[in-house]
Amino acid sequence: MSITERYRLAQMVHTDGPVIKVSNLKKGFGTRVVLDDLSVELSRGESMVVLGRSGSGKSVFIKCIIGLLKPDAGSIHVLGQDLAALDHDQTDQLRSHIGFLFQSNALYDSMTIRENLEFPMRRHRNTLVREQLDEHIIKTLTNVGLAHTADMMPAELSGGMQKRIALARALVLNPEIILYDEPTSGLDPITSKEISSLMTGIQEQYNTSSIIISHDMSCVKRTADRIMVLLGGKCYAMGTWAELARSNDDNIKQFFE
């Protein structure tokens, strides 16, 4: 990638307008249509929750945004850039502005926690010296309350701690957008509440925009500025918690009961 392109990419994160703009997105697997003509925008600093039944295409939606899946039709603009128009290097560069929290945490189990956090930095912050790297990693781990685990292996940690480490890894490059895939699934109610609080704290501290996929309604209530209900591959309803909670529509009511 040329220096001009790098500069343009570095500048684009300061542009106004929605940080994510999805237009007429279509995605299917074989004959099964998962996302059908979906259009949605995410504003800077906003937190949007995607609600939907299992298999409704929520994970497919955020995997299309990060570029892990290619849409069949439609366009996705992230931080002003059309994903379809980016080459491999440009996509990688753009991804350094996006954090992704996997449902399964996806921690590299053959690496220590420090190495897990170092991994994205090797590619995107390769000018940092050892001391700077260590300082940044410990600072990020401190933000999720787990600085003491730096030299432990993922298998030595509890599910909640692994989730926090996965969140720390998503944050290590100071992203502008974070995509959460069921951040509280499989956690007890207390840990789930802690993770939700951590997410809102991070949003304020790092001024990030986020898309959260969750079935945990207490997490949804705590974190959502806006909620999108996904049904039949389309945006069925959109609104704040208060607006949707008042709805008489059966498809919406079932989530809030």
């Binding site: 892990l68 491999h88 350094s96 996806a106 921690l107 590299y108 991994f119 994205p120 590619r123």
Partner: peptide
């Protein structure tokens, strides 16, 4: 087994998302 397990636990996707090929 190692790569299969990494695929199943989304570690390969996590590498791609972090900008590593």
């Amino acid at each position: 087994a190692e790569l299969g397990s990494m695929r199943v636990t989304e570690q390969i996707d996590a590498m791609e998302v972090s900008g590593t090929n």
